[in-house]
Write a protein that binds this DNA or RNA. Structure first.
Lengths: 252, 252
DNA sequence: GTGGCGGGTATAGTCAGACAAATATGATAA
DNA sequence: TTATCATATTTGTCTGACTATACCCGCCAC
């Protein structure tokens, strides 16, 4: 009976989905998605390690390592006798790249997207201002290259979207503030979904390039206030577009 | 030979330090501190699991679970054959509460503290403005209670400092923005160290209460702009105090 | 000489089963 | 009613084996 796996591996239970190399990683991902999507509510107690690992057809060690990952991200808390329970949302590391990815894995709520935009609106204009003061030539060049690429490929291609994210990333990086830079994953997530929603709504209304170039020009010209305003405008417009696109797609 | 542990347990190697309940947690803490303090540089390869766990007198599973925790926080990356290596600082989850705690465990660099303040300066005034628009009565009451407690106990006591952090936490919470709220741990860390440095410098120059009350009054009066300005001033003054205190304590 | 290919090997990854520690719960006694 | 204690359940830790992966190096063809 035991020793299923090895090669082709038959059917047994789900957990196909195949994917990310490490087993503990994919278990963590599965459970993580189940948690952030509300399938397991905060306060809920997960079934005990033996049953859970048995049901997933994995060893207890692999399952435990997955739980450690989730615990490290604040999603669950384990204690002897009590078991492992889903933590209150206030403890979740919502800005962690993986947690964020799990969120967007199962259609994030509109409210959540809105909150992310609000964060962007607070952080990015300020970051642009700092970047205008501190950016070096290499960073400036990377921003320029990213925008050129973005203009070339348009946001319809994966490469174009990556360039967009690259631009915003580099702005954060140019602040020279490491903690601030770690927010790039969160902001990147918001950026990505702006595009996805816009695409879905088949809107493609506005050309995003002028806004982006204005931000770039201000940073290149070392004008903090101008950079702040340009970025603020960019984010506002992006939010408007996203909202409009969502309104056009009630419930997919 | 084996089966050391169990009860009293002899001496063997270090890892006294005793402390935090779970073994994997304390291993993660030890390694985490070693990493953020620069003892293990990014790119360095940790020694293999067998040797490492042997040296720490723990089982390989416990050690592996610790590594999973560090990997979940972006501090290390493991791959077969290559081993486990310290990730580049850009990947570290600098805003994670535990990572932050590990940072402050071994005297954070002044530059890092400065960056944290810069983040505070970006986030907290904006948060105060949002809080002024959205706070509910319960939150307002908690802010008030925190300030009263803070005034009573002064920042010389642990209770007083906790009240200070409570105040700032509640402001973040009152924004109703969950991702924003997760920054409270980072801001809390900055707040805590403001106090520690001030204490150490035996400065205690300025009374922090007036600034805090002004923020509270603006939020209570539902005046966003006023709240933003008051919070901005509070943070600026806190930074000044901290800087002055540091200047007075060159190298402890 | 140069470039691609394949096997050897060190390392993390996974597995299985046992025992230890902690702690909520209910039974028992004062 | 309250305090104490036994017990059962669950996570925590340990051991040792086997598997899978990917880097490195030497071989071969060109």
């Amino acid at each position: 009976m035991t020793k299923t796996r090895g090669a082709g591996h038959g059917a047994e239970t789900e957990r196909e989905e195949g994917f990310s190399g490490r087993l503990h990683g994919s278990i963590a991902r599965t459970l993580g998605i189940a948690i952030v999507s509300g399938q397991h509510q905060p306060g809920d107690v997960l079934k005990n390690e033996i049953d859970a690992s048995e049901q997933l057809n994995v060893s207890r060690s692999a399952y435990r390592e997955a739980i450690r990952i989730l615990a490290a991200k604040g999603l669950v808390e384990s204690r002897p006798k009590t078991g492992t329970r889903v933590s209150s949302r206030a403890r979740w590391s919502l800005l962690d790249p993986e947690v964020l990815a799990w969120f967007f894995e199962s259609e994030p709520s509109e409210a959540f997207l809105q909150e992310l935009y609000e964060l962007r609106m607070i952080v990015e204009p300020a970051a642009a201002a700092l970047a205008a003061e501190r950016r070096n030539d290499a960073q400036l060049e990377r921003m320029r290259a990213a925008l050129v690429q973005m203009q070339h490929e348009t946001l319809a291609t994966e490469a174009g979207q990556a360039a967009d994210r690259d631009f915003h990333d580099t702005v954060l990086e140019a602040t020279g503030n490491a903690p601030l830079f770690t927010l790039s994953s969160s902001i990147g997530a918001a950026v990505r979904w702006t595009t996805i929603f816009k695409q879905r709504g088949r809107a493609l209304a506005r050309d995003p390039m002028p806004d982006h170039w204005k931000v770039f020009d201000a940073i290149a010209a070392a004008r903090p206030d101008q950079a702040r305003q340009a970025m603020e405008r960019l984010v506002v417009l992006a939010l408007e577009d996203t909202r409009a696109a969502i309104a056009r797609t009630p419930n997919p």
